[in-house]
Amino acid sequence: MVNGTKIGEGRVEIFHDGEWGTVCDDNFDEHTASVVCRSLGYYGGKLITSFHYQYLTIGPGTGKIWLESVSCAGDESSLEDCDHQGWGSHDCYHREDVAVAC
């Protein structure tokens, strides 16, 4: 997580194919947020999108958008194990980058 105002909060970024990139907020929910938090050693998981005041500080990312339409049941060990459209396949803009608070 990047740019959070406190520990356990920030924009979700994922390292794939040697490059960091962001995750689009399409279909991202609290179950998916909890997978992000657990994979980083935190508890809980609250979605922060561009509609939340915290997002003003966190802001959008740059570069690759790696994942869109990520959907987790909640028991997966990482976002890679969740359903998604495929690496780098998206129709998102960085203003749709998702952030999470654990």
Rank of each mutant, 00 (worst) to 15 (best):
M1D: 01
V2N: 02
V2G: 01
N3C: 08
N3D: 14
G4M: 07
G4E: 02
T5M: 15
K6F: 09
G8R: 00
V12C: 12
I14Y: 02
I14A: 00
I14N: 02
F15S: 04
F15C: 10
H16S: 10
H16T: 09
D17F: 12
D17N: 15
D17I: 10
E19W: 13
W20G: 04
W20H: 09
W20R: 07
W20M: 06
T22G: 03
C24Q: 03
D29A: 12
E30R: 10
H31R: 15
H31G: 12
T32F: 12
A33Q: 00
A33F: 03
S34D: 08
V35P: 06
V35H: 11
V35C: 11
C37K: 05
C37Q: 09
S39R: 14
S39A: 15
L40K: 09
L40A: 10
Y42T: 06
Y42C: 07
G44K: 13
K46A: 11
L47R: 11
L47E: 03
T49G: 06
F51C: 03
H52T: 13
H52L: 13
Y53H: 13
Q54E: 15
Y55A: 02
L56A: 14
L56K: 14
T57F: 15
I58P: 02
G61F: 04
T62Y: 12
G63P: 04
S69N: 15
S69F: 05
S69P: 02
S71T: 14
C72D: 11
A73M: 10
G74C: 13
G74I: 10
G74Q: 08
S77W: 09
S77G: 07
S77E: 11
S77Y: 02
S78D: 10
L79T: 00
L79S: 01
L79Y: 03
D81V: 07
D81G: 00
Q85E: 14
W87V: 01
S89T: 15
H94C: 01
D97Q: 08
D97K: 05
V98W: 03
V100E: 05
V100T: 08
